[in-house]
Write a protein that binds this DNA or RNA. Structure first.
Lengths: 153, 153
DNA sequence: AGTGAAAATTCTCGTAG
DNA sequence: CTACGAGAATTTTCACT
């Protein structure tokens, strides 16, 4: 699983994370190399799965997604069947942008993006109707201070 | 600020969120239109800021970022000067992928991506050395069940 | 592994329906 | 507002260093 990444690869990753819309020429110039080697490395990293899908980050507010919640979940059920149903429920719901299984006291955290508080409540009601959950705390974001998907490679 | 987005715009956004590397032709075919109208709409949405930067999502594990923490922060200080310093500290640190100011009991939540637990501790020590913080809880992710930046437009 | 150039594809925009 | 198509730019391949 460990892919060998050298310094030039890292520079390329930094550039494409910053702006994946750049031309190969621009990237090559930015990293101090030329088109072909950069192209070969990009292809290799794509095949290795180091570089995943290319996306565009949209402005949530401009599209009417004004509410963002972090949802802390405790459950008493830990059997495989329950986990499977919970996982499927999360994957099926487009509002759920992130879901992590946690170590410790709290079992799961979700990041949920919805148009407004009422839409969150609908999501919440639908979720607890599908799977049994012991305790839920919703943290409402007032302001997104920082957002990036870039890793500090 | 509200931009008028019609059904064709929405289809285009769905496509570019799914894969921004597609050619204009492919997108046009997928949304049932042709190049020129699609291109004009993309340009317009870019200018309006609806579509932000284009990036590549990298595989954290493949690059040695094996630890992801959600950090819940309570503070007793709420004056403007403190907030400013806190904000600058977050922006300056590449480990911090997300930061939100919250409503209610907990004041801030951060998402922090680091190579390992020791790197998290270094981040934590550096942060509390820079700004006064009343109470911190770190939630360690064991497993990323879902991740998407796509909005359900 | 890197260079340079040629071939295939895609972007960008003018013209027209 | 949408479709088509030509010229420009870019991506992708390949022979050579």
């Amino acid at each position: 699983m460990a892919v060998r990444i050298d310094d030039l690869d890292r520079k390329i990753l930094r550039e494409v994370q910053r702006d994946a819309g750049q031309s190969l020429d621009e990237i090559a110039r930015a990293v101090g190399s030329s088109k072909t080697p950069v192209w070969n490395r990009i292809r290799k990293m794509r095949e290795a799965g180091v570089m995943g899908t290319q996306t565009v980050v949209l402005d949530p507010e401009a599209l009417g997604f004004d509410a963002c919640f972090f949802v802390l979940i405790r459950t008493s059920e830990h059997d495989a069947a329950w986990q499977q149903r919970f996982l499927e429920a999360l994957r099926a719901r487009d509002e759920v942008q992130e879901a992590h299984r946690l170590a410790g006291d709290i079992d799961y955290i979700l990041k949920v993006r919805v148009p407004n508080a009422r839409a969150y409540d609908q999501f919440y009601q639908a979720l607890i109707a599908e799977v049994r959950i012991h305790n839920v705390t919703a943290l409402l974001s007032m302001e997104e201070l920082k957002f990036t998907t870039a890793l500090p490679v």
